[in-house]
Amino acid sequence: MKYAVIVFPGSNCDVDMYHAIKDALGEEVEYVSHTEKDLSEYDAILLPGGFSYGDYLRSGAIARFANAMSGVMKAAEEGKPVLGVCNGFQVLLESGLLPGAMKRNRDLKFICRPVNLKVENHETMFTSEYEKGEVITIPIAHGEGNYECNDKTLKELEENNQIVFRYHGENPNGSRGDVAGIINERGNVLGMMPHPERAVDEILGHTDGLKLFQSILKNWRESHVCTS
């Protein structure tokens, strides 16, 4: 399986994502510039955290217009797994691939520490290696992670089982419905504020993020066995 890590001006978690795939998962991965339009050679697209274009206007608002996003949109339409983490999640929201928007944290402070998440939906290509209701520990590092949506959207997310992760025990940023990660209706685009790529090895203090990447790989392999 071949992964693309999209690198925007201001990305700073691209290296973390790259090594999570290469070293922890043992799969092929490449950095791909924001100027590249054609992503057809990749099986999965990863949008890392950071401060794309300095987070001017809004987080992810300028990155949404980068050349690479046309390739990301096409990959999503084709059913390929697309994962946006932190700033990557913000880019997915700005691009319309996921519903809702992101505001500044409730206390208007940058937060950087491990938090507990509850796996609300374990029947996705990103979470099949988890148990339903499993509580995992994943780091967060953001200043604008306060997820917001209207009542109608929140109801639809809940009814369609699109809320994949919720903050458990405490809500660190004021995110509506304790939302930490959501998926599109088709189930192949996941956005989340916590950083699973920073929880893939014991040396990092936590390994709960590795199951997310293992889930992607397992589901990709199974789908290709079935279609080959």
Rank of each mutant, 00 (worst) to 15 (best):
T127M: 12
Q214C: 04
V164R: 03
T127G: 13
S70M: 10
F51M: 02
D14F: 00
L57Y: 08
Y56T: 09
T227F: 06
Q162P: 04
L217I: 06
G177I: 06
C13F: 01
E27W: 02
V115R: 03
A66F: 03
G187I: 07
N150E: 14
S175V: 07
N150F: 01
H206P: 00
Q90S: 03
G50V: 07
G177P: 06
I140S: 02
S33H: 05
Y130N: 10
H168S: 15
Y42W: 02
E148W: 12
Y130L: 14
I62L: 15
L217W: 01
H34I: 07
R198K: 08
M125H: 09
S52C: 04
E144T: 01
T137W: 08
Q214V: 06
G187V: 04
F110V: 01
G174I: 07
Y3R: 07
C112A: 08
N116Q: 15
I6F: 02
A20C: 08
S40I: 05
E197C: 00
E78G: 01
K211A: 14
S95M: 13
V85K: 03
V119M: 11
I140K: 02
L108F: 14
C149G: 07
D43H: 10
G88T: 04
M192L: 15
R113I: 01
E185L: 12
G145V: 12
L157K: 11
S128I: 14
P99F: 01
R176C: 06
P114T: 04
L83S: 12
H142N: 03
K132D: 12
R166P: 04
K103Y: 07
F110W: 04
F8N: 09
N160F: 05
N67E: 13
T153R: 04
E94I: 03
D208R: 09
L46Y: 02
Y53K: 09
Y56G: 02
D38W: 02
E185N: 11
E134D: 13
F110Y: 05
E134M: 10
M192Q: 13
P114N: 08
Y31F: 15
N150M: 05
F165N: 14
I163G: 10
G191V: 09
S128N: 13
E28R: 12
D107H: 13
Y147C: 08
K103W: 03
D16C: 01
I6Y: 09
S70Q: 08
K218M: 10
V7P: 07
E131H: 10
R221V: 07
I183Q: 06
F65R: 05
L108G: 00
G191S: 12
L83T: 01
V72H: 05
V135D: 12
E222T: 11
E144A: 02
K118L: 11
T127S: 15
V32Q: 11
N171R: 03
A63K: 02
G100A: 06
V200F: 04
V82D: 13
E30S: 13
D151T: 12
V82F: 07
N160T: 11
